[in-house]
Write a protein that binds this DNA or RNA. Structure first.
Length: 264
DNA sequence: CTCAGTGTTCAGTG
DNA sequence: TCACTGAACACTGA
């Protein structure tokens, strides 16, 4: 489930596993969607013998930095994930990249449905998509006044705006629905018609949800029972923990789970 | 067999 | 130019 919380969890995993260590072997599986045409070769060439110096993330995008120029940029798409393997642990299927470190541990990028990206870039921050992203909500510049300014000049429904990564980056479909449920705002509400109090609440609730989700390593079984998250997947007329009836609409081109009795 | 899906990008519209 | 919408992308599983 790669939204901000999952990607941040994987970034931390990569950080703890790789920073300060040298890549002894970098293996790429041929995939012209995950990599571009000839990139697998250049990626593994660039990585061999490189020492990892850091990990960075903005929204759902993340990259590694090294003791030499260049970034390993990674996007998980809809079905990507990152694995840490110790000893001779079995790797998952659909591997696209495997980094073997000088500790003997391996970092494996897996992507089953192939919508995702790995690139070797001179500087991930200056080219799209990262250069086009709005601020990350966990960074200090994501203030209430920033949010107010950003939202009030948009005409789309709030749900569509939450999904727009150029405004601020990291919210995906389930987090957007969760935020709107917990702030009692309808996903159909026009952004420009939000009130000051709504925006303050959005800011506070979004941060609360992100911090909680990151705090439990994005393990959905540890999300609070009161969250809409647990009831949104069947796309049936389910009820929340409080007994409220869910409705499913398409907003911003995505299936949107919400509770009309509570959100307006 | 059909279709939706935790995301992004791009063509088309107004 | 700009804001916005909807389709396309690949594959799996319901």
């Amino acid at each position: 489930m790669p939204e901000l919380a999952e990607v941040e969890t994987w970034r931390r995993l990569a950080h703890h596993t790789a920073v300060g260590h040298t890549i002894e072997k970098a293996k790429c599986w041929d995939d012209r969607i995950i990599f571009d045409q000839n990139a697998p070769v250049s990626v593994s060439k660039a990585l061999n013998g490189a020492k990892v110096t850091g990990t960075e993330r903005r929204g759902k995008h993340f990259w590694l930095t090294f003791d030499r120029p260049g970034h390993l940029y990674i996007h998980f798409g809809m079905s990507g994930s990152l694995w840490r393997l110790q000893g001779d642990e079995e790797p998952p299927s659909h591997r696209k990249l495997e980094l073997t470190l000088d500790t003997g541990e391996r970092l494996v990028y897996r992507n089953m449905r192939r919508i995702g990206r790995i690139r070797w870039l001179p500087d991930a921050t200056v080219v799209p998509p990262v250069s086009k992203l709005g601020p990350d909500p966990l960074e200090p510049e994501f203030t209430v006044s920033f949010l107010k300014e950003a939202l009030l000049r948009r005409k789309s429904p709030i749900k569509a705006v939450l999904l727009n990564q150029e405004i601020f980056a990291g919210v995906g479909n389930w987090i957007a629905d969760e935020v709107l449920y917990q702030t009692q705002i309808s996903p159909h509400r026009q952004c420009s018609e939000l009130r000051e109090a709504d925006i303050q609440k959005l800011h506070q609730v979004l941060l609360r949800i992100l911090r909680k989700a990151v705090g439990v390593q994005a393990d959905a079984s540890r999300f609070p029972k009161s969250w809409l998250f647990h009831h949104r997947w069947g796309k049936k007329a389910e009820r929340t923990a409080r007994g409220e009836l869910l409705q499913f609409d398409t907003v911003g081109g995505r299936t949107t789970a919400w509770v009309p009795d509570v959100q307006s």
